[in-house]
Design a binder for these strands. Structure first.
Length: 375
RNA sequence: GCGCCCUUGGUGAAGUGGUUAACACGCUAGUUUGUGGCACUAGUAUGCAAGAGUUCGAUUCUCUUAGGACGCC
């Protein structure tokens, strides 16, 4: 079967939605945060630990797995779930974003047929097309595959964005045509930058093609203004069907997740919890903290008193700061566990607030405290 | 005892008679949004062993003292 969305309710005062996703690997509630496991692993965190923090769907990456170890090997190993020992659902990104981010400031050649660019590993010439991306994702056997899209920079002008939106639509059609995995859903991606008519056009035309779910893409790129991101969501959502999952790609930070939920987004993914963990930082109810800071040298309290994760139940800031200082890999692992738990707990509370029709109060209360110390 | 060389920040060190003493590490702080696997950005010596002298001006030249390396008796 294909991953299926069920809308349970829409919050009374906003567009926030409570729902479930049924997959071959279990049924999960939305809104949901998906940890990122680019190379068939959420960096530093084992599948058992992911389960413990309440992870549902995780994200992995077509581009990276294409290069290493290769889709054929993963297929021979029984597909991505079996290969990485993760028995929950998996969404694979199409590689469209990597073309944008890896080849940033480098030579890349976007043609109608596909994208020519160079491997970040050995520099060999690569050619990725919509068909190739879908074929790889079919072999990986993820539960949700993403269409191969073009992800333009935030600074792109109207003409560029318009052409890009149209090309992404043609690529979406080509991808859908070759998609052949009967257990895999295929999602379309809405583009169009912060421009209302482009977002509207992109959303309507993508829905016309007909996908199992829809993503709002091209946000949270580089120096994109937060307001532009919120506009992009607002301009896209009204044209997406109620009965399909809505995915905001690459987001994010607690504030952006809350904003997204209120605007009608169901699922999110972001590298932030694991990346900042590897760089020594942690989410807390009172904002982000940097465990590098000398002030934690003798702090015997947990990262977050109110957190129920393994890290907070067993370790002090003093100890984690020490691990961060001496660059022990356990630091990244403990912080990743905590940071992922933090965002997942946030979505748990968001669901509760939607049930109680008080998401706006919850959001305000959360952000008041979270942002009190910064800005 | 004699000869010769050396002494620059928390560390390893570069360097010059004259604007802000290079660089690296460390330390301090910040950044990170569909992850190029541990990154990036910024700050960090009012002082060049101590004292005296030469000079318009010395960390850079001279002398004395202290500490250290090496060689010889």
């Amino acid at each position: 079967m294909i991953a299926k969305y069920n809308l349970i309710k829409t919050e009374k005062n906003t567009k926030a939605r409570l729902g479930t996703v049924e997959t071959n690997y279990g049924t999960y509630e939305t809104p949901m945060f998906m940890p990122v496991g680019t190379r068939a692993t959420v960096k530093g965190v084992s599948p058992e630990e992911l389960k413990d923090v309440g992870s549902g769907i995780i994200l992995s990456n077509t581009y990276h797995l294409w290069l290493r170890p290769g889709p054929d090997l993963i297929e021979r190993c029984g597909g991505l779930h079996s290969f990485m020992h993760w028995d929950g659902p998996i969404l694979t990104d199409s590689g469209g974003y990597q073309v944008f981010s890896l080849a940033k400031n480098k030579k890349k050649d976007i043609t109608e047929e596909g994208v020519h660019f160079k491997s970040h590993i050995d520099g060999q010439k690569l050619f990725l097309t919509p068909e190739k991306s879908i074929e790889i994702q079919n072999k990986l056997d993820s539960d949700i595959a993403m269409s191969f899209d073009e992800c333009p920079p935030a600074s792109a002008d109207y003409e560029y964005l318009k052409n890009s939106v149209e090309r992404t639509l043609r690529w979406a059609k080509r991808g859908k045509k070759v998609h052949s995995n009967k257990n895999q859903a295929l999602f379309g991606i809405v583009q169009g930058g912060p421009i209302e008519d482009l977002r509207k056009f992109s959303a309507i035309e993508t829905v016309k093609i007909g996908f199992d779910g829809y993503a709002v893409g091209g946000v949270a790129n580089d120096d994109e203004d937060k307001e532009d991101m919120y506009k992009a969501i607002d301009y896209s959502i009204p044209y997406l069907p109620e009965d399909k999952l809505r995915y905001l790609m690459g987001v994010g930070e607690p504030r952006d997740i809350l904003e997204g939920v209120v605007k009608g987004i169901d699922i999110f993914d972001c590298v932030i919890p694991t990346r900042i963990a590897r760089h020594g930082q942690a989410f807390t109810r009172d904002g982000k903290i940097n465990l590098h800071n000398a002030k934690f040298k003798e702090d015997l309290t947990p990262i977050d008193n109110e957190c129920d994760c393994y890290t907070c139940k067993n370790y002090t800031k003093a100890y984690i700061r020490h691990l961060v200082s001496v660059e022990e890999s356990l630091a990244g692992r403990l912080l990743s566990i905590h940071n992922i738990r933090f965002l997942i707990k946030l979505t748990e509370e968001i669901r509760e607030a939607i049930k109680n029709d008080n998401i706006l109060e919850y959001k305000e209360q959360f952000l008041d405290r979270y942002e009190k110390n910064n800005k």
